[in-house]
Design a protein around this nucleic acid. Structure first.
Length: 298
DNA sequence: CGGGAAGCCTGGGCGC
DNA sequence: TGCGCCCAGGCTTCCC
């Protein structure tokens, strides 16, 4: 599932293969893929056609391509950007024209240089594309409107660890819910939340109100480290014509300590990893390293 | 207004 | 073999 490291791999791929090129045509094969573009498919394609792709930005799991008329144009408030969220199964593929269409091709973008096209492919259509004007953000920079409420992620140079810790401790919920809340800290999904909790030896149901500052720093530092490691491995797996999102977390799945490791030995103490129900899905943890707190959040 | 849960999707895997 | 069910899960929307 694409979480922060996987989206960053895609961002880098787009920066390498799409930035600086002028869009020729845009075809929407499945309207659900642009459902977040309220003005509809014709408006979406019209806003992109003929525009030059500028910088490729990311915050948390959202990424966007700035659009300009000329290469020397610096982005201004009101300029359009193409916003993408990969959801569960979204892929950005850079493909030669002759390559057969993928079964779940949703949007095709061609360029006036006749080079490889950009394809948005998404089996489960939880993801999608939309166009939005950039607007000045409270914390600086220019953001598309749907990203305005998303907190900075741990790879952002302006990320402030202690502010994120304070944000978690202000919540009144379980620790994992807070880690998954993209308005507190962004980029963390189910996989990296479980890995970070294991590294920090904290249980997912730990009430945030009883979390110490040191524990908050530990779990967020662990999240940043595990995502850095995943990025380093995921970055090795894409080639020139494939902007990598393969639906899994690159090669990093070999390095997961707890996620999906039910009944396997904890790498730290050997105790079998347990799986517990959490928000209609799963949490994986070590029963010995991460004992359930007495005051566990329900 | 904050917290929690339902709903959106499809294909792989499994039991019968 | 084929059907039905469960599971994966990020985000928006709705309700309390």
């Amino acid at each position: 599932m694409p979480e922060l490291p996987e989206v960053e791999v895609v961002r880098r791929g787009l920066a390498d293969h799409v930035a600086g090129r002028r869009i020729a045509t845009v075809t929407v094969a499945h309207p659900r893929a642009i459902r977040r573009h309220a003005a509809g498919a014709a408006d979406f394609t019209g806003r992109l056609a003929g525009r030059l792709v500028g910088a490729v930005r990311r915050r948390g799991k959202y990424l966007w391509l700035e659009l300009a008329d000329a290469a020397q144009d610096a982005p201004q408030p009101g300029d359009d950007a193409v916003l993408a969220h990969l959801g569960m199964s979204g892929q950005m593929l850079v493909a030669d024209h002759g390559k057969p269409d993928e079964k779940h091709l949703r949007v095709r973008v061609t360029f006036d240089d006749d080079g490889p096209e950009l394809r948005f492919v998404d089996q489960r259509t939880f993801g999608g594309l939309s166009a939005h004007p950039l607007a000045p953000a409270a914390g600086g920079g220019l953001l598309p409107a749907p990203v305005a409420h998303i907190a900075r992620d741990p790879m952002d140079p302006a990320f402030v660890l202690d502010d994120a810790v304070a944000g978690i401790r202000r919540r009144r919920t379980g620790l994992k819910r807070a880690l998954l809340d993209q308005t507190v800290v962004s980029g963390i999904g189910n996989i990296y939340a479980d890995e970070a909790l294991w590294r920090a030896r904290l249980h997912w149901a730990r009430p945030t109100e009883s979390l110490t500052r040191a524990q908050g720093r530990a779990v967020l530092t662990a999240a940043a480290e595990v995502m850095d490691e995943a990025l380093a491995q995921g970055g090795t797996s894409f080639d020139a014509l494939y902007v990598n999102v393969n639906g899994a977390s690159g090669y990093f799945d070999r390095s997961l300590a707890v996620y999906g490791q039910t009944d396997r030995a904890c790498p730290r103490c050997g105790t079998p990893i347990r799986r517990e129900a959490f928000m209609n899905r799963s949490s994986f943890s070590c029963p010995r390293c991460q004992p359930r707190p007495r005051n566990a959040h329900p």
